[in-house]
Design a protein around this nucleic acid. Structure first.
Length: 468
RNA sequence: GGUCCUAUCGUCUAGAGGCCUAGGACGUGGCCCUCUCAAGGCUAAAACACGGGUUCGAAUCCCGUUAGGACCGCCA
């Protein structure tokens, strides 16, 4: 039997971190078993579902590389199917018509809560014989006894059916409700493994009861522990960015997020770094932990940095262009781009950070950081810079290697340490005191720009001398 | 309030009764390297929630306590 898993988000917002991990685990499990991964949009709540949300979820999935084999299926297009099954259950007598109005139910709920009783439906329409000409909801008649959820991750969980209320499976307007659609869909789509957040555990016995009433075999259930924020409550906007696409905008690589999410709740010995293929090969539900985990942005950052170092400069260039645009820089035609990135990628935690620190490579003129200029662009360095200019113009090939040799000869001549030369030059070249290594940076920048910046620095130092 | 889930360094985790003086990773501190910043290398501090059992032996199995979390809708 082929494994079939599904991810079934409701389109009431963007794809968030928790949903992405659920999707990822479903995807990994399906891929590991050479099965099918199905995408289903749970939009039975017509009022809250939006087209924008659907698109946002699809975008997020695509960015993460979680491709689906079937779907997206939309529950809103399957209402006839649900109604048909609801009627069957009604005829079988395992469901009944409930004529209580939402207002009445709400009033009773509040009263119960006030008196400290469980806000459970009292079943007053259960054995009603008449059929008044009024709108009715279809309720499932929960049988007595106990229902056992056999969960791959959590183990066996027993529920007393008396704690489960007669749930509505079809609203009085004829639309189906969640617990019912899920079962009908999972049955008709031949889902073999239901992998979802453990916030669904309490729904599971209800769904099992419906499976039984329908006469269908149960899928295997696996309930994933929640992802928590730093205060150990359910991850939400209060904890910062929760939208997957926000991570794209912050300059994260999709695989960094995938690797991070995979390791949040799942482990493979002491291994931290996994390629996509390794993830597929090594993933198993057995090694998913039971306890919830706190989302840790620092570790994500570390992984991102790791994968940035691991990515070819050419590819990074492509990814960096949109971030450069925000600085008003169009670098797509700049042949220096890959070389520039090579100097930067060892020291960037995000693509955005890399773009921010690359700006000096692209500007016509740079501005000096006042403190840096005051400390390093001193008139006493004019002579040194003139020598530098000669060497830089004279060196046969403008590479890190020959530049280093050329610089060393200056240093030897003047009896200087590299620091005395590198820091002033760094300020002249970049405007600040922090940058990539001086030789690799010169090579990446190119002779033309380097020479012009040294000249500018000499002019600047002369001005300073004149003022003094 | 009811139902259910969970409990190892600050965080993610390894741990399947003796391999545990509890391992790895992120983060944090120190040292080395060094033209700045990183990266890299080395290193340090840092945890079995508590109480009872079971056992020759418990982080590991059982029970309880405590603490956290989720769910209890004509939302999904």
């Amino acid at each position: 039997m082929t494994v079939r898993t599904r991810f079934a988000p409701s389109p009431t917002g963007y794809l968030h971190i928790g949903g992405a991990r659920t999707a990822l685990f479903n995807w990994l499990f399906a891929r590991h078993h050479n099965g099918k991964f199905i995408l289903r949009i749970e939009d039975t709540d017509v009022a809250r579902s939006t087209k924008e949300s659907i698109q946002a979820i699809l975008d997020g999935m695509e960015w993460l590389g979680l491709n689906w084999d079937e779907g997206p299926f939309y529950q809103s297009q399957r209402f006839d199917e649900y109604r048909k099954h609801a009627n069957i259950l009604l005829e079988k007598g395992v469901c009944y018509k409930c004529y209580c109005t939402p207002e009445e139910l709400e009033a009773r709920r509040e009263a119960a809560l006030k008196e400290g009783r469980p806000p459970k439906y009292d079943g007053r329409c259960r054995d009603r014989a008449d059929e008044p000409n009024m709108p009715y909801a279809v309720r499932f008649k929960v049988p007595p006894g106990t229902t056992i959820v056999d969960d791959v991750i959590k183990g066996s969980i027993t529920f007393d059916n008396s704690s489960i209320e007669d749930l509505i499976i079809q609203r009085s307007d004829g639309t189906p409700t969640y617990n019912f659609c899920v079962v009908i869909d999972d049955v008709t789509m031949d889902i073999t493994h239901v992998i979802r957040g453990d916030d669904h555990i309490n729904n599971t016995p209800k769904q099992i009861l419906i499976y039984r009433a329908l006469g269908h075999k149960l899928p295997i259930f696996a309930h994933l522990p929640m992802i928590l924020g730093s205060d150990k409550t359910r991850l939400s906007k209060r904890h910062g960015a929760t939208s997957v696409m926000a991570y794209k905008d912050m300059g994260f690589l999709p695989h960094a997020l995938v690797n991070y999410l995979a390791r949040l709740g799942w482990s493979f010995g002491d291994q931290e770094i996994f390629s996509l293929n390794e993830l597929i090969e090594k993933f198993s539900l057995e090694s998913v932990g039971k306890s919830s985990g706190v989302f840790n942005p620092e570790k994500l950052l570390w992984l991102n940095q790791h994968y940035i170092k691991d990515t070819k400069s050419e590819d990074l260039g492509e990814l960096m262009l949109p971030f450069l645009k925000e600085h008003g820089i169009s670098a797509e035609a700049d042949p220096r781009l890959p070389a520039i990135i090579t100097t930067l990628k060892e020291r960037a935690k995000t693509i955005k950070e890399m773009a921010d620190s690359s700006v000096f490579y692209f500007r016509e003129k740079i501005e000096y950081d006042p403190k840096a200029a005051q400390k390093f662009l001193l008139p006493e360095n004019i002579e040194l810079f003139n020598t530098l200019l000669e060497k830089m113009s004279g060196v046969a090939d403008f590479t890190a290697h020959s530049l280093e040799a050329a610089f060393n000869s200056i240093l030897e001549e003047k009896g200087l340490k590299l620091g005395k030369l590198a820091q002033p030059l760094r300020v002249a070249l970049t405007g600040g005191t922090v940058s990539p290594g001086i030789f690799e940076m010169l090579e990446a920048m190119g002779r033309e720009m380097a020479v012009s910046r040294v000249k500018d620095a000499i002019d600047y130092m002369k001005e300073v001398a004149a003022k003094a």
